[in-house]
């Protein structure tokens, strides 16, 4: 399960809308149990409406900050938007997740006026949807 707070959801949707017509992406910072404590918007280095990529140095910076803070938080997943398709992992998403079996893959579809979020675990090419709990406080 992925547990999101209202503020993070607002930040993600805002980042997604800001990046249109390109896909937006960012890292989910939290605990291994799937509680997201912060959203770190990242630059989509592909600058594309169909693909995204995060510069490894940006990931490195986030992980260094988290290690230095010593509060036990880590990068637990990645959020990206689909600008013109539903919130389901594409073959590219599944292929590129090969080494990230422990991560949560949150996809926000901006295809319709209301943003739609769905979250997945992707392991050995198998996609399993997980529940999203939105903590409204």
């Amino acid at each position: 399960m992925l547990r999101l707070r209202r503020q993070q959801w607002i930040e993600m949707v805002a980042h997604g809308l800001d990046c249109l017509p390109e896909e937006a992406c960012g890292l989910l910072v939290g605990r291994p149990d799937g509680s997201v404590e912060a959203f770190r918007p990242c630059t989509n280095t592909d600058r594309s409406a169909r693909t995204y990529a995060i510069d490894g140095r940006e990931i490195l910076r986030v992980e260094r900050d988290l290690d230095a803070s010593g509060n036990g938080l880590e990068v637990v997943g990645v959020m990206h938007t689909h600008t013109h398709t539903d919130a389901y992992p594409s073959p590219t998403d599944v292929e590129r997740a090969a080494l990230l079996a422990s991560w949560h893959f949150l996809i926000v579809s901006l295809r319709h006026p209301e943003p739609v979020a769905r979250s997945y675990r992707i392991s050995d090419g198998e996609v399993a949807e997980e529940r999203i709990e939105l903590v409204v406080r």
């Binding site: 896909e23 169909r50 995060i54 990931i59 990645v78 990206h80 594409s90 590219t92």
Partner: peptide, 12 residues
């Protein structure tokens, strides 16, 4: 030396 996963994807 730093090892970092490549994070990318999209609708292709």
């Amino acid at each position: 030396v730093s090892i970092v996963p490549a994070v990318a994807g999209g609708t292709g």
